[in-house]
Design a protein around this nucleic acid. Structure first.
Lengths: 249, 249
DNA sequence: AGATTTTTTGCGGTTTTTTGCAATATTTTT
DNA sequence: AAAAATATTGCAAAAAACCGCAAAAAATCT
């Protein structure tokens, strides 16, 4: 890999995720951390990013909001995305919902992956669209301004006609007794259809939403195959869900 | 192998793979690396690629350097968009295709306008989505990476089920004898369906595409109600189209 | 055609760039 | 305060670029 090529990649990653870790980049592009550090140094001098202890930050995202210390704590959603990516194999049909966690997943897909992604989430579709080896199926219907996904009868019937290998769902609430719950009538219907259609359902959520409840019931825990959070898989908070038969990553 | 031939090959490779290595080229074409380096030097001075340590990168790899010609075209599209916007009234159902002219139209919509826009073009949908008073209906199907619009049987049947007031079509070729022509089989079918479904069809195009022909026939001039270009409505080039019964703006 | 000039190309030697490593210092975490 | 992670520095090996220079090839001019 050429030096400039590598630096362009780094800049791309910084702009995409607002931050990068030297260690991650090192393993990702298989060069020593020294080299990464020197790259960051140069790019920093060129004003293309801001170098901090442990990695670099996006210039645009650089107000007081992010102190250098924050770089160490990887964003929870990035951690979740990285775990989720490992489930996707070449040739798979993957159905995804909306939400920021799903966007992060879309941005973390390795360039080498070639698969088919189905979604009604416009931001997610935009990310998939930029990927060189991914086919995109758009679920059409009326676009909800709030959630930026298509909702309605058309979307439901289209989803019911599919049998994807995998379904990634960003969820707002999960609880041992009440299972998955949500607060939007149409979104709930969509999620139910997605779960029913898919061979395997993977739920993504940050840990603070675990053991919370919302007004509308989506499905029971039995319907969920895999649960991904930013916590280590052996965290005590997750044990009850393992006992309920869910694979926790 | 001639020098010019060799350099043409190098440019081709750069455009194809976005990067080339001096060492690879050397063994590939069987000349010394010095020669390759001198070639890259010259091509770099001609602006055909970017020379870096170890090889060269495509111009597209770095940042897009847009030529004055592109900027000129951009201005023209803005003129076209402003004319087109005037046709849209509150409460209308508007069907739009893809292409840069349509994007420009989407960006030019006044905030006060409240209407419903139907499209399968992801970039257009993104623009509509940001508008406060516009409802968006997404036409779903397989996403074409090139044109960034959804194409396929699903999209066709969905469009056929609609009766929009207005249809805006960015066109690639228009000619007095052959009418509207295009070069992509699927896109042609989509445009035909859009024209048939709509009560009024508005074609948008920059003047340089007037009186040009492409391989596949979309429709005859009779199907077109309004033609919008960046030229003044009384420009002589447009007179024949007026005579053919088209309203020219 | 033959001679002369110009261009192109490869080669040896030198300089610069790039990269990884090891030892040491600094920062962050626990 | 100790431990772990990250930075810095100097250095050496490899790769690549650079600099004439001369042979070969092509173009130009008698």
């Amino acid at each position: 890999m050429l030096k400039k090529e590598r630096q362009a990649y780094i800049v791309h990653q910084v702009n995409l995720h607002n931050k990068v870790l030297s260690a991650s980049l090192s393993t990702e592009i298989d060069v020593s951390e020294d080299t990464i550090r020197r790259d960051l140094q140069e790019l920093s001098e060129e004003g293309k990013l801001i170098k901090v202890h442990g990695g670099a930050l996006s210039h645009a995202f650089n107000d007081i909001t992010y102190s250098p210390k924050k770089v160490y704590a990887q964003d929870n959603k990035k951690i979740i995305a990285d775990k989720a990516v490992k489930l996707i194999k070449n040739g798979m049909f993957v159905l995804t919902g909306g939400g920021t966690t799903i966007i992060e997943l879309a941005r973390s897909l390795p360039v080498s992956l070639s698969a088919t992604f189905i979604s009604g989430s416009i931001p997610a579709i935009v990310e998939y669209m930029h990927h060189p080896n991914i086919e995109v199926i758009v679920i059409g219907d009326k676009l909800s301004k709030n959630s930026k996904i298509t909702l309605g009868a058309d979307a439901l019937t289209r989803i019911k006609s599919l049998k994807p290998d995998l379904c990634f769902l960003g969820i707002n609430s999960i609880d041992l007794q009440h299972g998955i719950t949500d607060n939007d009538w149409d979104v709930v219907h969509l999620k139910q259809a997605m779960i029913t259609a898919s061979q395997k359902t993977v739920c993504l959520t940050i840990s603070e939403k675990i053991n919370t409840i919302q007004p509308i019931h989506v499905c029971d825990l039995e319907k969920i195959d895999i649960l991904i959070t930013e916590l280590p898989h052996d965290h005590p908070m997750l044990q009850p869900y393992k006992d309920a038969g869910i694979t926790v990553l």
